[in-house]
Design a binder for these strands. Structure first.
Length: 279
DNA sequence: AAGTCGCTCAACCGCTGTAAT
DNA sequence: TATTACAGCGGTTGAGCGACT
């Protein structure tokens, strides 16, 4: 905590209309950056965190209000299954929704619903079967960059994983690569709960062969950038990301704070596993 | 009508990662 | 290389409100 944030006289609690207006005008003038400068510039007796939160969760113009749609709920469920409690990542896939909104919605509507007897135990993503306190513990599997060696190992692992799933389904040739790939079904029609669809999902992820790309630094990264144009790169690989704002590979270092939108560590999580699937 | 309970969601807190020095 | 400051995240809290007794 900084000196400013720890300062005793800083106002807390609910925001007034007047404070909202001051903050809004200040951000319109100076932009969404250097939050520590916002309170003095706006003439607000609030800490920078409070200002940032108020703007991001309430005042920002494109924030979507009201009930979550069926598609949004579906997306939250899928992404949570994949990412765990990475609310900002999940919210990044839902235009107009904030991480706080998603987190609150999950805690109030979905957490209990998702508790089931089905055991899905991924190494690094353990889902407890405790009826009251489902906890998804996502181990942070850094590195965020993959070495060349690790990349090869990872691709082999994915391939093996897909083979295992095909075996489990009793259809060894199911979803074997067969160019050209079939058109993507609508995201809402693909459920990750269905093993076949899950295979299809991962198959799409791998189809391009660009899953791991070499950078000049001989390391590989995968991720998405924030707020730039749509590349459809990932949208073509996974229904989960279809229609989302942007995915780019090896172009993620757009700002010094790009890490909040990174995805690589999570993929690493999923792949560096010896899963046991209950089908 | 009054009290209690449970739910929702805005806001706070503590922590981590990163950049700057 | 170590230290400091900042940005941002997820977990948690508590005020407000409606439903219920």
């Amino acid at each position: 905590m900084t000196m400013v944030e720890g300062f005793v006289g800083v106002r807390k609690g609910a925001w007034t209309h007047e404070e909202d207006n001051l903050l809004r005008k200040c951000i319109e003038k100076y932009g969404e950056q250097k939050w520590h400068q916002i309170p003095p510039r706006a003439g607000l007796n609030r800490c920078r965190k409070s200002c940032r939160l108020r703007w991001l969760n309430y005042l920002k113009p494109n924030i979507k209000r009201g009930e979550f749609t069926e598609d949004e709920v579906d997306m939250i469920l899928r992404l949570h299954k994949l990412l765990g409690n990475r609310w900002s990542l999940i919210a990044g896939r839902l235009p107009g929704r904030t991480a706080n909104d998603v987190k609150n919605y999950w805690n109030t509507h979905l957490r209990r619903k998702t508790v089931s007897s089905k055991r899905l135990d991924w190494k690094g993503m353990k889902i407890s079967t405790n009826q009251n306190t489902e906890k998804i513990n996502v181990i942070k599997p850094q590195p965020r960059t993959f070495s060349k060696k690790a990349s090869v190992r990872m691709n082999a692992k994915i391939t093996m994983e897909l083979e295992n799933k095909r075996e489990l389904l009793g259809h060894p040739n199911l979803y074997k690569k067969a160019p050209p790939p079939p058109p993507l079904p609508p995201s809402s029609s693909l459920s990750m709960d269905t093993p076949a669809n899950e295979i299809m999902w991962w198959e799409r992820l791998l189809q391009s062969g660009e899953f791991v790309q070499e950078t000049p630094a001989t390391t590989s990264r995968i991720g998405w950038s924030d707020g730039t144009t749509v590349t459809n790169f990932w949208a073509e690989k996974s229904p989960m990301f279809a229609g989302s704002t942007c995915f780019e590979v090896d172009k993620i270092c757009l700002s010094k704070h790009h890490h909040d939108m990174e995805f690589d560590a999570d993929i690493w999580n999923l792949l560096n596993t010896e899963e046991e699937y209950a089908i």
